[in-house]
């Protein structure tokens, strides 16, 4: 008699190892690339030297150390966190809504964050001397409020509190908030450029502050979605059958959306509205490995981080010293790559 799962339904260790290897390779490559060249050997040694119980000496000058650890690494780590978070949130949204087009901004998180950020930029007080920048806070609150509004609207629909009514409520809320945001943006034309730049997203950092700020949200959010990945497979048979199998679809959906949104709001607050990651990464994994969220979620964490770190390398190098908005890169590079995967894959689209 067979003892375990059939081989093809496993999360195979070499997929995990491969994805992890890709993430590490992306991080190392990003650490090497920049206007000031660093040698690969000393970067790796400097990294290992920072691990506990290892003392190699780095061979980097103080200036090189500062470039690596105070300028490049915070930005790379932020890229890992933002990329992982948006990919995981995307997979969670796709799972709970059984909709391959769902992304983390579906229920108004993106539009809400955009409105919050625009308000802060256009009407906020002069903040250069403030200890805490109100812009991320405004974007964070905006994202949460957007999704809350969508949920309240969706739940007030009398004919049924289904996934579809929730999506439609999200579409309405997002359209309304975007309209408000655009209106304010056009009235305050002196801040137009700043607002526009924020919306297109950037991983530019001023040090480790942003990383420390979003890390707890991202960790909690990812842990919850990971824990719920099997329940997303149950949701795949629809709410009626899922409830007869022993779960409460509405509750599962609400918890997963809540935590996916919390993490999304946190990363959006510091990096702006980076698009496309939340759709392309989970989908690529799905096309390569099959439709089970037991496999999609963990691989999306690793590959999402790798993808965004590499996208950021392009964003900060092609027009150096100027930067291309990273949202442009994710779409410009991601779309053709996705098209190739789509054409060559024998996997599942929806």
């Amino acid at each position: 008699m067979n003892a375990g799962r059939p081989a093809s339904t496993h999360l195979k260790w070499w997929w995990l190892a491969g994805a992890l290897g890709l993430l590490i390779a992306a991080v190392v490559a990003a650490a090497l690339v920049g206007p000031f060249p660093l040698s690969p050997g000393s970067v790796v040694r400097s990294g290992l030297d920072r691990l506990p119980f290892i003392d190699l000496g780095t061979g980097l000058s103080d200036r090189e150390e500062a470039i690596l650890w105070q300028i490049r690494m915070p930005r790379i780590m932020l890229g890992v966190l933002v990329g992982s978070m948006l990919s995981v949130a995307g997979s969670a949204y796709q799972g709970v809504f059984r909709n391959p087009l769902a992304d983390p901004y579906l229920l108004g998180a993106g539009a809400g964050a955009g409105l919050g950020a625009t308000l802060a930029i256009a009407y906020g007080p002069e903040t250069t001397n403030w200890i805490v920048d109100p812009l991320p806070l405004a974007a964070f609150v905006g994202a949460i409020v957007g999704v809350l509004l969508a949920y309240l609207l969706g739940y007030s629909v009398r004919s049924g509190r289904t996934a579809v009514t929730l999506i439609l409520a999200g579409v309405a809320v997002a359209a309304f908030l975007t309209a408000a945001q655009t209106f304010i943006q056009q009235r305050q034309s002196d801040t137009l450029r700043e607002v526009y730049g924020w919306i297109l997203g950037s991983l530019a950092t001023a040090g480790w502050g942003e990383v420390r700020l979003v890390l707890p949200y991202v960790v909690v959010s990812i842990v919850v979605v990971l824990a719920g990945r099997r329940l997303m497979d149950v949701l795949a048979v629809g709410d009626v059958e899922a409830s007869t199998l022993g779960i409460e679809p509405g509750k599962v959906r609400m918890v997963l959306v809540a935590f996916a949104t919390l993490g999304t709001a946190a990363v959006v607050a510091v990096s702006g509205l980076i698009g496309f990651v939340g759709i392309i990464v989970p989908h690529t994994v799905r096309l390569l490995t099959g439709a089970s969220y037991r496999i999609i979620v963990p691989l999306s964490i690793l590959l999402g981080g790798a993808f965004l770190v590499l996208a950021d390398v392009i964003a900060r190098t092609v027009q150096s010293p100027a930067e291309v908005p990273i949202g442009v890169v994710t779409a410009f590079v991601g779309a053709p790559f996705f098209a190739v995967v789509l054409r060559t894959s024998r996997g599942v689209v929806s």
Binding site: V237, S292, S350
Partner: peptide, 21 residues
Amino acid sequence: PVFPKGMSVFDYVLLGRTSHM
């Protein structure tokens, strides 16, 4: 019944065990 695209027969039957986990 809904038979989700890309789900293996094994995983589909395993859904029946949901209330036991």
